[in-house]
Design a protein around this nucleic acid. Structure first.
Lengths: 176, 176, 176, 176
DNA sequence: TTTT
DNA sequence: TTTT
């Protein structure tokens, strides 16, 4: 149940390799940082400005395993998740960090054509090793290039023809 | 698995009561039409123009049951689904209809404060009756105001403090 | 120009009245906090859990004026913006706050049927007064229930007929 | 103004080269077809199924010129637009076609790393020639790899640190 | 810390 | 008609 909508959609590049860890129950958690960039012309100087926004993304569960396996530093990726802010403390001072959580309700889509992470290598990424005991059923699953969050579509789905619209009789009062 | 993203987000009002039917296997299918409206000033005449777009939305599965149960003509609703075009034939002529499919990968959120459909009555909606034999487990589920597609969130969730940003030292070259 | 996508979509309720201020150049800035809620059943205890996520939303420009004018504590609203993290300092310690920025590239949509803020009163909201000198042209604009970000649509817009799909010949291997 | 939300987000590949035409007033219109694919395992046979959905996308205005210039058959692209259904007639029979309209309120983002269309060549695309008389100002604009719909961001935007969350004390009742 |  |  929910009262509200909390949705984040990002397309960006990884600032570093993903970091995957495992919880005591065997569930995976994978962290990445994602850069999205804007550039615009300064109104006064006319100079081209650029600004990069960095996002903290955390994957949970099966999607975390695949993120850790296929993404690499530099990978371009589509992310759909939700905003979540958590509290932490340093030197007795409370701080807050906002993350984009991607779990069963989210989506991840690699955008590097090759089907790899677009990164440096394809070795299973380092970091904390998966505990061997728990959650053996997840290891068994041969994870291919995934989707997540995609139900099987309905029965038929033919392409949709129709003549291109004629705009010849349009006047100035139209679509833009 | 998916190679691509196919997402539709709508907020609008139902043009009529939902129509729910059941497939041979007991699964529910619910159809609604949804109106979204735009208005704008004609560039030439300066007159206020209005245009309503009508969308065909089809729910599948458990979310179809809840849509049929809670939505009514006039209800305001948030919909998240995917585009799908299907072929059909009339008088030997092929036609195509594009619908917004909402199933396990989608979301529905009622936006009428009361928690009912915002519509005329609250009687279980008519139309085809659910077959009594199949899928009895779904009848057992006491469906409250639903969400769908929402995993249990992470552990803590504190409000987030921070002073409002000072914009006093801003010049003209900013956010807009 | 952009290299990436940075989009946030929220539907929630305001935790308090909006706070509007004006920058030296006359541009408005409006801050709100928005709550989105999730509830779910604890897997172990079966108890219903609830968690509220609080979001800091900041409007800029014309949309800030309308947000400040129409939204109130408790208002339900649809927001489309982008994530942005800014640095600030307290007691010599750097902190970071993530906000959802809504400006010309974003959207706001009130979801309280009445067309008012759904809140307590309809008085022009207090807080910092608008400076009288700059940007007088914006005061002149009679702001109705707004949209933003909506181009005039194309010429015609008929409702769309088509027979409902027959699912009678479906087997178990379908849409969900 | 709008009463409702009508948003489509697609990531897919072009089925053919874009077709650009110009309206009498000099405004560009560009049509593409976009494929999004799903694959899933048949529940009964266990076989991998695939289904491609084809979308008709129409760009208007400046974004149409850039789409026509940079996109090619096979290009991967992110699209944000709105649903619109238009009526047309053939043999005295009314038909309806649903398109995704991308104009000033939408967005386009090329996802082929190279910065070209990812397609076959980079020659200015054929089709109807732009009329030389009207809208000369648009020809003057040196269109680079665009964004659209992106306002200049706020003043500062530093990266956001914080220690990675410790999940060691988590039990089974968490994020997924 | 990414990318073009 | 695309892509992997």
């Amino acid at each position: 149940m929910a009262r509200g909508v909390n949705k984040v959609i990002l397309i960006g590049n990884l600032g570093g390799d993903p970091e995957t860890r495992y919880m005591p129950n065997g569930n995976a958690v994978c962290n990445i940082t994602l850069a999205t960039s804007d550039s615009w012309k300064d109104r006064n100087t006319g100079q081209l400005q650029e600004r990069t926004e960095w996002h903290r993304v955390v994957f949970f569960g099966k999607i975390a395993e695949i993120a850790g396996q296929y993404l690499r530093k530099g990978s371009k990726v589509y992310i759909e998740g939700r905003l979540q802010t958590r509290e932490w403390e340093k030197d007795g001072i409370k701080r807050y960090t906002t993350e984009i959580v991607v779990d069963i309700g989210g989506q991840m889509q690699m955008l590097d054509g090759r089907g790899d992470g677009g990164g440096y290598d394809q070795q299973p990424q380092g970091g904390q090793q998966r505990p061997q005991q728990p959650a053996p059923q997840q290891q068994a699953q041969p994870v291919q290039q995934p989707d997540y969050q995609r139900a099987a579509p309905a029965a038929q789905i033919p392409p949709e023809p129709a003549p291109a619209q004629s705009y010849d009789n349009f006047d100035d009062d139209i679509p833009f």
